[in-house]
Amino acid sequence: MRDDIGQGKIILPAKITRDAVINIRALLSHPMLTGMSRDQAGIPIPAWYVKEVEVIYGGERVAHFEWTSGISRDPFVGFSLRAVKEAPLNVTWKDNKGGVFTHSADVKFTTTTADATR
């Protein structure tokens, strides 16, 4: 069995300015098994997949996804977010076997030294 299940990351753009619509990419290591395949001994492999994903930005739920096992293994999702505040962005994946995985990234505005002194 893979030992990386539940690992993941949230990727934010390198530069974020206030009120810009930014692209968020969220990746989780998960087998996403449909329950329709069999192992080498012919024994059915039970379904194991992420059912629900929540995106929380500064305490507010901005998006949530309902998935079936039709989403590919190591599920990837890219979506937009309007960066209105500097706050943590948490993404929580919940699977059908009770697994809960949360990863986060901090939305921070890019300030150059020139901006700061102006």
């Binding site: 590919s72 599920p75 979506f79």
Partner: peptide, 12 residues
């Protein structure tokens, strides 16, 4: 709050 309706994912 997300500002734009875009989606990028992979399916079976």
């Amino acid at each position: 709050a997300i500002g734009a309706a875009t989606l990028d994912t992979r399916i079976k």
